[in-house]
Design a protein around this nucleic acid. Structure first.
Length: 752
DNA sequence: AGCACGCCGACT
DNA sequence: GTCGGCGTGCTC
């Protein structure tokens, strides 16, 4: 559905109003450009319209980000793709996200458009006689370019023979069975076919064949036979949005009731809220917010950090919400099926969308509320340089609240300090709902490991054995994958380091080799200390495999393993795994044998993560939380095992302020890929002189390599987020214009 | 002087 | 992203 300006004749003589267009070219280097609005397109061109406009003589797809009156422009908007246009308030959200996060505006806008949108396809309007394509056919730019050559392609576009035809990917086709009119087959001696036919009639005479076959257990032969008899037709239809109808299950809804009054009040008053509830109550709090939103006739968007959580929240909402509403999931795992959900959300046909970060900018016809589930999770932000925006979902949600008037809820027992700090809450007008504490708390044992070289204390081993003997389950958290992060001498304490990079060498397998994670240096593990000559060099840094082996030895029976990559013997009485995989489950006892690896990590943000780990571990443990440490008085440890978030914040916030870290100052992490000389030249002679006052920049530090090229890290810091974002955007622009240099930019990363 | 190549900035 | 201008440096 593209409205075209009939070519140059349509250019109005009097000065037309002007559209600012952000062309969908993913670069920092191209600003929004001004184009005239031809008279006949006038009303269709508004902020949010998706339009075609020429750049360097060829049409490009872009989004109108603003309109002005009076000025004239040399080039004109060519056409409008009405069926793709975004709500203008969402464009406002995209603009603010772009400014705050130093992500090019076209990249942010692209994230708000349908996934997989083809921007480089043309519809053939008036084919030349020599062309192999017919009128109305849609052809990819690459195909046209190969066949015609770039000049003829441009000429064809200028002559109006072809027209840019953006199209979201079509939903996949699904096979349907449809009863033929007046069909009355004799199925007395064909029970399978009869069953199929009856079920199909029960469903109103049309149904996807997959579910018919699954439900009756019939095979395709029975279906084919019905077709042969002329009883049914098999047709292919576009898959409808995979929405689910709510059920209003009373028993499940009862769990939601305690949250409902609060949620109704908050949704009604509007604004941004922190809601601290125990992790296991989060789905019910979300259900209450969604419920209250639907009562107001608006749509709810729920954002979860990963696909598994999305699916479980969808299931919970489907059962808990009153009957008569629709819920849909939106995440990358749905492939092309996502398009239909996108359309349904944009058109207001679905009431609730639950999605991963890819859904953060999903257009909604009636935006009512946005819930960020497990707010501090790092899954809410894409790694810079990979697909998706390197922006935390909470920041997008906050902007949606402001621009679209949606109520925003950030849920977690332990929200990130950058959103819960009193200064931030005041500045951003974030209100805190009454805190709900876990009603059960396990017993806590903190085992002081000072003066012990052992991996496991006797307390730990006894606790494991006791739980095992009582038929209870123990979950143990490891901090690393693999076997060991380093080897050190038990006599003098020296750590074996890489001769090139000075980094501790990691142990690849039980007996070696020793490998450098940065430069790839490899050596055999001799077990001998280079410093004191002892032969007592042993693995340290308790990685998953090692812990598992060790624990199995002590218990005299196999121990389970759960990581993102593998699940083995997950039902064993004792299971070792990564923090993420262990803590999403419930255990009788949770054991953190090496919490110091988290507490003492050098990254700022690591302490906060440790607090969450401890608090989360306590919530996941029914009876016992056991922690081994050499810093038993550490504030994050003491507060974490009690779930005392306020006590932790009271110490950590002043520390962050003193260090000049978010939320008290803002950072941008720049990662450059290229030769050291190119990086230093760009950073020192071009970026540094251009920095605004108040923006500090660190030195260039090597941080490893990506394949053949080297990676370098530079940190920018400023009191104001806009200033640091501008500097980061400048860095990205400089790198984009420098041959052999790539930059990835992240403003206020979760951890530095 | 004439031309190839690569860098840089403009493009609306 | 893509193009053209222009400066550098090489060849005829």
């Amino acid at each position: 559905m593209v409205k075209s300006a009939g070519h140059p004749s349509a250019r109005a003589a009097r000065s037309p109003s002007v559209a600012r267009v952000s062309l969908l070219i993913p670069t920092h280097a191209l600003p929004s450009l001004s184009y005239g609005i031809p008279e006949r397109l006038g009303p269709a061109v508004r902020p949010g319209s998706v339009v075609a406009a020429p750049l360097s003589g060829r049409p490009r797809l872009g989004v109108v980000v603003g309109t002005e009156d009076g000025q004239s422009a040399r080039e004109y908007v060519l056409s409008v793709a009405d069926d793709l246009s975004l709500p203008s308030r969402l464009v406002e959200v995209c603009r603010r996200v772009c400014e705050k996060a130093a992500v090019p505006l076209p990249v942010v806008l692209r994230a708000a458009l349908p996934p997989g949108l083809e921007t480089g396809r043309y519809r053939v309007l008036k084919p030349d006689r020599a062309w192999p394509w017919r009128t109305g056919e849609v052809v990819a730019r690459a195909v046209l370019e190969r066949a015609l050559g770039p000049d003829a392609l441009r000429a064809a576009a200028a002559e109006g023979r072809i027209e840019l035809a953006p199209a979201p990917p079509r939903p996949p086709l699904v096979e349907w069975a449809v009863v033929r009119a007046a069909a009355n087959p004799d199925l007395r001696r064909a029970p399978r076919q009869r069953e199929l036919f009856e079920l199909l009639k029960e469903r109103g005479g049309a149904s996807p064949t997959a579910s018919l076959l699954a439900e009756t257990g019939a095979n395709r032969g029975a279906l084919r036979e019905l077709v042969r008899r002329g009883a049914i037709r098999v047709v292919r239809r576009q898959q409808a949005a995979p929405t689910e109808a709510t059920e209003g299950d009373r028993a499940v809804a009862r769990d939601v009731q305690p949250f409902l009054r609060l949620a109704r009040r908050a949704v009604k008053s509007g604004g941004t809220f922190l809601w601290r509830t125990p992790a296991r109550e989060e789905p019910d709090a979300v259900a209450a917010v969604v419920w209250a939103t639907l009562e107001g006739g608006e749509q709810a968007l729920v954002l979860a950090p990963e696909i598994g959580v999305v699916e479980s929240v969808v299931g919970r909402l489907r059962r808990a919400l009153p009957a008569g509403y629709t819920v849909a999931a939106f995440h990358s795992g749905l492939g092309r099926g996502r398009t239909a959900v996108y359309e349904a959300a944009r058109g207001g046909a679905v009431d609730v969308v639950v999605g991963t970060r890819t859904a953060a900018l999903l257009p909604l016809a009636r935006p009512g509320s946005v819930c960020v589930v497990d707010e501090p999770s790092e899954g809410h932000r894409a790694e810079p340089g990979y697909e998706g925006l390197p922006v935390h979902v909470r920041d997008i949600a906050l902007e949606r609240g402001r621009a679209e008037g949606a109520s925003v809820f950030c849920l977690s027992p332990y929200p990130s300090l950058r959103i819960s700090a009193p200064e931030v809450r005041r500045r951003e007008r974030i209100r805190q709902l009454p805190v709900r504490r876990s009603d059960a708390w396990p017993g806590v044992r903190i085992v002081d490991m000072r003066g012990s070289g052992a991996v496991f204390s006797s307390t730990l081993i006894e606790a494991c054995r006791r739980h095992r003997d009582e038929g209870k389950r123990v979950g143990m958290v490891a901090n690393r994958l693999g076997y060991a992060t380093a080897v050190s001498c038990t006599r003098c304490g020296a750590v074996k380091r890489c001769p090139n990079c000075d980094l501790p060498l990691a142990l690849g397998g039980r007996t070696g080799p020793l490998v450098c994670v940065r430069c790839g240096h490899k050596e055999t593990n001799t077990g001998r200390c280079d410093e004191c000559g002892s032969d007592r060099v042993v693995p340290t840094g308790l990685a998953v495999e090692h812990l598992r082996e060790y624990l199995a030895e002590h218990l005299g029976e196999p121990v389970g393993l759960v990581t993102a990559a593998s699940r083995d013997l997950a039902d064993a009485p004792a299971v070792v795994g990564t923090a993420h995989c262990i803590l999403e489950d419930d255990w009788d006892a949770v054991i953190l044998p090496d919490v110091d690896a988290f507490l003492l990590a050098s990254a700022v943000g690591a302490v906060e993560r440790s607090y969450r780990l401890l608090h989360g571990a306590a919530e996941a443990a029914r009876e016992l939380l056991l922690v081994q440490t050499r810093v038993p008085e550490h504030y994050a440890l003491r507060a974490g095992v009690r779930g005392d978030y306020e006590a932790f914040a009271a110490v950590e916030l002043p520390r962050l302020r003193a260090l000049g870290y978010p939320p008290f100052a803002h950072l941008a992490a720049l990662t450059f890929e290229g030769s050291g000389s190119a990086v230093r030249r760009t950073v020192e002679s071009r970026l540094r002189p251009a920095l605004e006052p108040g923006v500090e920049m660190s030195a260039v530090v090597p941080v490893g390599r990506a394949g053949k090229s080297f990676l370098w890290r530079v940190l920018l810091r400023s009191n104001g987020r806009p200033a640091v974002a501008r500097a980061a955007a400048l860095a990205a622009r400089l790198a984009a214009g420098t041959h052999g240099l790539k930059a990835r930019v992240e403003v206020d990363p979760e951890e530095v």
